[in-house]
Simulated assay, not measured.
Amino acid sequence: MTNQTKIEEAYVAAHARALQAAEAVRRMIEDQPAPNGDNRIGWDHVGTLRHYAEQLEDLLGTHESEDAGN
């Protein structure tokens, strides 16, 4: 097995892992309660979603910084 083949296999595995993680985050966000008559939401729910958004924005900001350096 060549080094390039190893790199490509590792990339495919990392890509799949990242997509699985992104899908899990999407489901986690969607599972948060919606503000309707049956669900009482509180500031804790707002805080949770703000925390998720902040972490995702940090991740995206890091990625943008890396892209700018290329």
Results as ranks from 00 to 15, higher is better:
Ala14Cys: 05
Gln20His: 04
Arg27Tyr: 01
Leu59Asn: 05
Thr2Ile: 05
Val25Pro: 03
Met1Trp: 05
Val46Pro: 05
Leu49Asn: 09
His45Gln: 15
Tyr11Gly: 05
Glu64Val: 01
Lys6Ser: 07
Val12Gly: 04
Ala34Lys: 14
Met28Tyr: 11
Leu49Cys: 08
Ala53Leu: 04
Gly47Asp: 15
Ser65Asp: 08
Asn70Cys: 06
Val12Lys: 15
Ala13Tyr: 05
Pro33Tyr: 13
Val25Ser: 08
Asn3His: 10
Glu23Val: 00
Asn70Ser: 01
Arg27Asn: 05
Ala53Asp: 09
His63Trp: 08
Val46Ile: 04
Asn36Pro: 01
Val46Lys: 14
Val25Gln: 08
Ala68Ser: 12
Gln4Ala: 11
Gln32Asp: 01
Ala13Gln: 14
Asp44Gln: 09
Gly61Glu: 10
Thr48Tyr: 14
Leu49Ala: 12
Met1Gln: 09
Glu64Gln: 10
Val25Asp: 06
Tyr52Leu: 07
Asn36Ile: 02
His63Leu: 13
Asp31Gly: 08
Arg40Cys: 06
Glu57Leu: 12
Leu19His: 14
Ala10His: 12
Ile41Cys: 08
Glu66Ala: 13
Ala10Trp: 02
Ala68Val: 00
Ala53Arg: 09
Trp43Leu: 06
Ala18Asp: 03
Val12Trp: 05
Gly47Ala: 15
His63Pro: 00
Gly61His: 04
Gln4Glu: 14
His51Tyr: 15
